[in-house]
Design a protein around this nucleic acid. Structure first.
Length: 470
RNA sequence: GCCCCCAUCGUCUAGUGGCCUAGGACACCACCCUUUCAAGGUGGCGGCACGGGUUCGAAUCCCGUUGGGGGUGCCA
């Protein structure tokens, strides 16, 4: 048995579909585990050919998912358009062997005729006309009588009555090959052994299989995995849903989290947990274990996965992963003074509070800004509390002398709170707003330690005059 | 219209005739922890679409119904 050859054949559209990402991942997992090959074939159109960046985008997206073109298991990219002549040659062979015939009926004529017969679609009217090639004539496949059985690795045997399949077009009136034909011919010339794709392609599988057989080859192993759907249970589409993998990447979802989540849609690893490293997926993924029903792409669950992956990062890894968003934040906050060490020190407190990397800067911005960005409503509320001004004043005094270390600051402030007869939760509110600008955020005393005594005092002192304390 | 696929908690799934008074995860709720918010811990809510078979026994097999989805181009 030769090593299996899997093919992933996206058509470039300017963005990479998450559904495509999932099938790519499945192909990749199998290719890696079985020592086979992952073939990237770009189903390029005229438009795509003029936009090489679209193809680059696909390769980038795959690389982000961990499907690297540098990996020995990776082959391609190939471009369908380069094989046009072979598609035409194959069509010619099909014609010569009687598997296909020319038809000179126009779409309108076909419609009229079907209407007259009270039927639908093309009725094979030119089958025995004995026509040769000519301008305006299409080449149609002569669908044989009988049934076509598709052996699907996910669904088992699926039978199609050939009588329900009309003689479909192989070559257009202008001689150019149809996608269906091109696809089969490419799979054949690339010696593809497994075709794993979304379920929406199942209905045209018998057509492809018939072409394989007419060309003298046994069909590959088919596998149709369930589609991804939205809340309305409709196939997720570019029009209605957020399907671009890039948008998730840009929002700060980690690639391993995305990969892991995508793979749990329609499949699950053995053992108790579904959060598993890629290696486990590669070792355990089996087509036979894939579910048959559509899966809802649940953003909330994706977020939960992402949170887990973020928390699992070391502080340094987190800082590195978040860097693009931190850089962006710096660019939009020119007055900020960045301190990488301070950010890394803060990381353990921001990681449990961020579901995406994009949220990271917002949690710690006060550490780097010359002035915190105040949440006005929260500020007003915290300071409106009975005795807030006095508490802040006492805090300033206590913070001026206590050792500048989280525990000590905590102790000092606890004493102040007690003197005011306040619980920690209440007491810290004015200080938190004064220093961080918000009523919620990372642990206060650790934040103060990192901010520094001078800056903490400065912000506390700056507070009363700048606000109207009632 | 015709063809095809699908059907376990709200969602993603485990389950391949007895281990199922159906397990886990996300979400939700409660409690605990706690300097806020998170995170974490504990617990709770909640499901085999329906009807017939087959069988000693069915979430698991068969048939039907209903309900969803997909396909059906001289698109890719």
């Amino acid at each position: 048995m030769d090593a299996p050859r899997f093919r992933f054949a996206p058509s470039p559209t300017g963005s990479f579909h998450i559904g495509g990402a999932r099938t790519a991942l499945m192909n990749w997992a199998l290719a890696k585990r079985l020592g086979g090959t992952f073939i990237l074939r770009i189903e390029d159109t005229d438009e795509a050919r003029n936009r090489p960046e679209w193809t680059e985008g696909i390769i980038e997206a795959l690389a982000w998912l961990g499907i690297s073109s540098d990996d020995p298991a990776f082959e391609g990219p190939y471009f369908q358009s380069q094989y046009a002549q072979q598609h035409i040659d194959a069509a010619q062979r099909l014609f010569e062997t009687g598997h296909a015939y020319y038809c000179d009926l126009t779409s309108e004529q076909i419609q009229d005729r079907a209407k007259a017969e009270g039927s639908q679609g093309y009725g094979g009217w030119s089958r025995d006309a004995g026509l040769g090639p000519g301008p305006g004539r299409v080449l149609r496949f002569r669908v044989p009588a009988g049934t076509t059985t598709v052996h699907d690795a996910v669904r088992g045997e699926v039978q199609f009555d050939n009588a329900t399949i009309e003689d479909f077009v192989l070559l257009r009136g202008n001689g150019s090959p149809m996608f269906l034909l091109a696809n089969v011919v490419d799979d054949l010339t690339m010696r593809v052994s497994h075709v794993i794709r979304a379920e929406e392609h199942l209905p045209n599988t018998p057509k492809q299989q018939m072409i394989w057989e007419a060309l003298g080859h046994a069909a590959p192993t088919w596998a149709h995995v369930p589609v991804l759907v939205n809340e309305q249970r409709k196939k997720i589409s570019k029009r209605r849903d957020k399907v671009a993998l890039e948008s998730y990447r840009d929002e700060g979802y980690l690639a391993p989290a995305m990969v892991n989540y995508l793979m749990t849609l329609g499949w699950s690893p053995r053992g108790g947990t579904e959060i598993v490293p890629w290696q486990v997926i590669e070792d355990e993924f089996r087509l036979e274990d894939v579910n048959h029903s559509p899966a809802f792409f649940d953003l909330k669950k994706l977020a939960a996965f992402n949170g887990e992956y973020i928390r699992a990062l070391s502080p340094d890894e987190f800082a590195t992963a978040a860097e693009p968003w931190l850089a962006q934040w710096r660019a939009t906050h020119p007055t900020a003074v960045w301190d990488q060490q301070r950010f890394v020190a803060m990381a353990p407190f921001v990681q449990p509070r961020a579901t995406t990397l994009a949220e990271a800067p917002g949690v710690v911005d006060f550490l780097f800004l010359p002035q915190p960005e105040f949440d006005e409503a929260g500020l007003a509320k915290a300071l409106a509390t009975e005795g807030a001004a006095a508490l802040v004043a006492d805090s300033i005094e206590a913070f001026g002398t206590c050792p500048w270390q989280a525990d000590a600051i905590n102790a000092a402030f606890t004493a102040v709170a007690e003197r005011h007869g306040l619980k920690m939760g209440k007491a810290q509110a004015p200080v938190r707003v004064a220093v961080t600008g918000r009523t919620v955020g990372p642990p206060l005393f650790e934040s103060l330690e990192l901010l520094g005594r001078d800056e903490t005092l400065r912000r506390l002192r700056a507070l009363p005059p700048s606000v109207h304390v009632s």
